[in-house]
Structure formats: C-alpha cells, structure tokens
C-alpha cells in the first residue's frame, strides 16, 4: 500500500514537472494557482492543524510578502525570485513580532489578534502611500514568466508539504501535537511550549510570504484589498479543514478538491459559494473533525502517515 502510494506520488510529480512543456497558457495558470492554494492551506495547517492555535489572519503574511516583494521589484529593481524570498523573510519578521506577545497566551487571544492583524496591515499599507502606492496599488513591469512561476509555486507547495511530512513524522511534531491536545500536560513534560508555538508560527508564515511575492509577480498588480482579503484566509482554512487538519495530505486533498470545484462551478455564484464555505466549516467541525481524509482513512483502514 505504502509502496504503491510512493510510486504514484513519484509519477505524479514527474508528470507535473513535464506539464508546462505541453500545456496551454490557461492550463499553466490554473495549475500554478492550484499550487498556491496547496501551499497556503498547508501553511495554515502547520500552525493551526498541528498546534491547535487557529490563525484567522494568515493572509496578513501573504499580503506582507506580496508588498515586500512588490516594493523590491518595482522601486529597487530586484529580480522576482530573490524578491519573493525576501517577502517570506518579511512575513517571518511579522510573525515574530506578533507571535511573541500573542502566543504566550491561550487560543482565543491568538485567534482574534490574528483577525485584527489583517485589518491593521491593510490600513498601514494603504496609509504609507509613498512606499506602497496606497489605495491605487503597485504595478509590476510587464514580463511574462508563467512557466517559471509555475515551478516556483510548485516548489513552494512541495517544500511546505515536505516540511509538514517531516514534522508530523518526527519527535518535533509530537511536541506540537502534545501542545494541541493538552498544553498544561505538555509543559509538565518539559516542553517549552512558548518556543515551539513560536517556531511553528514562524514556519507557517514563511511560505505564505514567498507565495504572496510570486502571486504579485504573476498578477502584475497588487492593491491592499486584493492581497489582504479575508476571503483568502477563509479559503485556506476551509481547504485545510475539509481535507483534514493536522495531517500531511489532508490540506493537499482539500485544496485540490475545492479549487477544482471552484473553477468549474462555484465562482459564478460568488456569495452562494462563500455561504457554502461557511457551511463546510460548520459541518466539518461538528460531523467530521478529521476531514475527508479522516473519513477515508477510517473506512479503508489506510495508514495514518499518508
């Protein structure tokens, strides 16, 4: 079983690596957005799925990364690859600043302070017009790079999924999960919970920052309401929950399923589709806390690590 899964995965990755050589422009853009959502949902999973600290403002890192990269590319003439990495670093700095006070306390404080963080970042970015272009946004010089961005997004998704795999199957990950299950017990066992929570948080902020930079390069134009949009946070949470939070493949499964459905049908009925997102969260929390992956694992007796 496990063997078959590994072989299947290798074939899939190989196929995806060759895909741009034969695909249409639309196909490539579709796939790169899919990778973006996998990376985002998986990043949210790293903090919220593993340690149980819900982040309602993960898009703040995405937006920060997008703006950091945007400023470096447009006013300092950086290439978009180092600029996106710098976007990731900017997101990490923000995570350290906000995580240090808020993660020392328990769940709700962190959750709501993240909800506020997004608003604040949007306000600040709109306010400092000289640097960010304010409400009128930042435009990138035109320079199509879809194929390169395809690979960059794919690498980001792969990196964060790989990180999730190594964390979940390691002692390090057990510490995160102990914090999720019982923080007092975790402390009593000698786990420095504040440090590990901050570690998970910083780790989960880096990739959204990078992906934000790539997104900015790909769309060529960013403005505060487009990169600090609450719907982006909602989408990553729904994807991770739907697939199965706290697992390696759940967020991937959730992102793929929901993104394909979204592209095919739902995007035409915007608000209806967001009502459905709300409903999915409610149903998953009440009826299948381990997501569809959890349901599948139970029904077909699949091993936990895949």
């Amino acid at each position: 079983m496990k063997r078959a899964f590994q072989v299947g995965l290798a074939v899939l990755l190989f196929g995806l690596a060759l895909y741009p050589t034969m695909a249409s422009g639309y196909g490539i853009r579709f796939m790169l957005q899919l990778f973006m959502w996998v990376a985002l949902a998986q990043s949210w999973n790293l903090i919220s799925g593993l340690t149980g600290y819900v982040s309602f403002g993960h898009v703040a890192f995405f937006g920060t990364g997008a703006y950091a990269a945007g400023i470096l590319v447009t006013t300092h003439g950086w290439h978009w690859v180092p600029a996106s990495l710098a976007g990731g670093v900017a997101a990490v700095i923000l995570a350290l600043l906000i995580g240090y006070p808020c993660l020392r306390l328990k769940g709700p404080y962190f959750a709501i302070s993240m909800l506020g963080l997004n608003e604040v970042m949007r306000v600040l970015v709109s306010y400092f017009e000289g640097l960010t272009g304010g409400g009128s946004g930042l435009s990138f010089p035109t320079q199509p790079a879809s194929v390169q961005i395809y690979y960059a997004m794919a690498l980001s998704a792969l990196a964060v999924t790989g990180a999730a795999y190594f964390i979940i199957t390691s002692r390090f990950g057990l510490k995160f999960m102990t914090i999720r299950e019982d923080e007092v017990a975790a402390e009593a066992m000698g786990i420095d919970t504040a440090r590990y929570k901050l570690g998970a948080f910083v780790l989960s902020a880096f990739v959204p920052g990078v992906v934000g930079g790539l997104f900015a390069r790909d769309t060529g134009y960013i403005e505060p309401i487009s990169v600090f949009a609450l719907i982006i946070t909602i989408t990553m949470i729904v994807m991770a929950l739907f697939g199965g939070k706290g697992t390696v493949w759940g967020p991937v499964l959730g992102a793929v399923t929901l993104f394909v459905l979204q592209e095919l049908v739902w995007a035409r009925f915007l608000f209806f589709y967001q009502i459905l997102f709300g409903a999915i969260i409610v149903v998953v929390v009440l009826l299948m806390p381990r997501g569809i992956l959890g349901v599948l694992q139970q029904r077909y007796h699949l091993p936990r690590t895949i």
Partner: peptide, 23 residues
C-alpha cells in the same frame, strides 16, 4: 470541545451569515 472547535464553528457561522446578507 477544545477551543479550536468553537472558534472555527462560530467563524463558519459568521461567514455563512455575512454572505447570506450579501445575497
């Protein structure tokens, strides 16, 4: 249930209600 559940649940309710209002 753990806080995670109630936070997510009320978040889900809120998204559904806001978008019903939008509609």
């Amino acid at each position: 249930a753990p806080e995670l559940s109630s936070l997510l649940l009320t978040f889900g309710i809120s998204i559904a209600l806001v978008n019903m209002a939008q509609l």
